[in-house]
Design a protein around this nucleic acid. Structure first.
Length: 424
RNA sequence: GGAGAGAUGGCUGAGCGGUUUAAAGCGGCGGUCUUGAAAACCGUUGAGGGUUUCCCCCUCCCAGGGUUCGAAUCCCUGUCUCUCCGCCA
């Protein structure tokens, strides 16, 4: 959520800024609501003052042993008016709240203009795509060899967009997660964290998945208010809901390896084949909670931590700055890492790193004590470090041998009992 | 799942319908005293919001409803914690 001051004092500037990410802010509707809110709130508070004073007077009169009946009669319908006025106020406030919760973050000035994927800007490349002496296969063909990646079995159990991994593929998948966790905890200073995979809806409001992206979530059926996490960013960041941490605890750096669940509504027909887009996938997620001053360097650090995974695996990738229209709801700035997939001859997203300023912290009231002791909203940074399913695809495609076996990246060998080649 | 007990400000903890719209202690901060420190003493000390913004007002005693002129206090529902029993990885 944005600072209410932006809405109240400079809403036209806000509206034009939001237009750069393709969001239309209904200025007239907001102004009208604010007007109503102001007068209603003033009236309500005036009635409350009156009510408080009257009740106090009655109490004092009673303590002196006087007859309070006339005083009580005098208060009369004051209570009813107060209730009525307060109901109105609550209704207005919740309308304003609903409106504000649906407004995305303000973008940083530096990010590329444009609303479409083609407007994203490639910032840098790392590594050279390997020149194969044979025609490289994609992960679907390679995975089919020993039923190592079994889409039919996944579909039989759970439907489309689910997969079963077997033998060396399952092992490689596990190894990748372990490797990433170790890298971030041992080299990058993140605290390993285990979190619930089901969260209350307030958490999804906190990080910004709700109210706008309800259809992307997997809600738990039944009597619970629980939803499967679409990313560990949700539980990790919400650890600080309604908390005030001391400034010397910052930066807080957390990493978690979790499954992620996405309904992928609105992506019918997109990446239907293969493991690129699944309802359930695993991801190692990095989250930092920092002060405003620390935020810029935290963001570039976090990006470099995600890149370190790909560099250690020697996977060619490029860094892309997302344009306004492509930047996530809660983010002020997002860089994607796209890994080279020789089977498809293109770069595919494998990590997305976002700086959210105080947008999420404001929604969940996550704060720290500033230099003068006053609470300030934390700034949040998050990113995948990296998506495990897609990392598996990348390793399989980039390290394939002519006979369909998979060479093991040096960095992973200790996680695979020293094996240099997979697939038998 | 069953039965009980709880949830109060940074912490401990009183209050159980109106002189308490949160006592007291601890901690924190400022001051007096002191060569300095400790001790003692004095003062101060939460969050959010409104506003005619160095003043005043409103809200917050787990959450949401209700009773009342008035609720931390009474009633209902929910959440969480603790103890015991059962079950289970």
């Amino acid at each position: 959520m944005l600072d209410m001051k932006l809405f109240r004092h400079d809403i036209t500037a806000l509206a034009s800024s939001l237009a750069s990410r393709g969001f239309t802010l209904d200025v007239a509707a907001f102004d009208a609501l604010e007007e109503k809110r102001k007068s209603c709130q003033q009236e309500t508070q005036a009635l409350q003052t009156e009510r408080n004073a009257s009740s106090k007077a009655i109490g004092q009169a009673k303590a002196r042993g006087e007859d309070i009946a006339p005083l009580v009669a005098e208060v009369g319908e004051l209570g009813d008016r107060l209730v009525e006025s307060n109901h109105q106020l609550q209704a207005i406030l919740s309308e304003i709240d609903t409106l504000c919760l649906s407004v995305p973050n303000v973008l940083e000035d530096s990010i590329p203009a444009g609303l479409r994927e083609e407007d994203n800007v490639v910032l840098s490349h790392w590594g050279e795509p390997f020149k194969f002496a044979f025609e490289p296969k994609d992960h679907i063909a390679l995975g089919a060899l020993n039923r190592g990646i079994d889409f039919e079995a996944g579909a039989a159990l759970s439907g489309s967009r689910f997969v079963v991994l077997r033998k060396d593929m399952a092992r490689l998948h596990r190894a990748l997660g372990q490797f990433m966790l170790d890298l971030h905890t041992q080299k990058h200073g993140y605290e390993e964290t285990y979190v619930p995979y089901l969260v209350k809806s307030e958490c999804l409001y906190g990080t910004g998945q709700l109210p706008k992206f309800k259809e992307d979530q997997f809600e738990c059926a039944g009597d619970h208010d629980l939803t499967l996490i679409p990313t560990a960013e949700v539980p990790l960041t919400n650890l600080f809901r309604d908390k005030i941490v001391s400034a010397d605890a910052l930066p807080i750096k957390l990493v978690a390896h979790t499954p992620c669940f996405r309904s992928e509504a609105g992506s019918y027909g997109k990446d239907t084949a293969g493991m690129i887009r699944q309802h359930q996938f695993e991801k190692v997620e990095l989250v930092q909670l920092v002060s405003e001053e620390q935020a810029e360097s935290a963001f570039s650090d976090l990006c470099s931590h995600a890149e370190a995974v790909l560099q250690a695996l020697k996977l060619p990738y490029r860094r892309v700055a997302l344009c306004g229209g492509d930047t996530a709801f809660s983010a002020a700035k997002t860089y994607d890492l796209e890994v080279w997939l020789p089977g498809q001859q293109l770069y595919r997203e494998i990590s997305s790193c976002s700086y959210c300023r105080d947008f999420q912290a404001r929604r969940m009231s996550a704060r720290y004590r500033g230099p003068d002791g006053k609470p300030l909203f934390l700034h949040t940074v998050n990113g995948s470090g990296v998506a495990i399913g897609r990392a598996l695809i990348a390793v399989v495609e980039n390290y394939q041998l002519e006979n369909g076996r998979i060479a093991v990246p040096d960095a992973l060998q200790t996680y695979l009992s020293g094996a240099a080649v997979l697939g038998d």
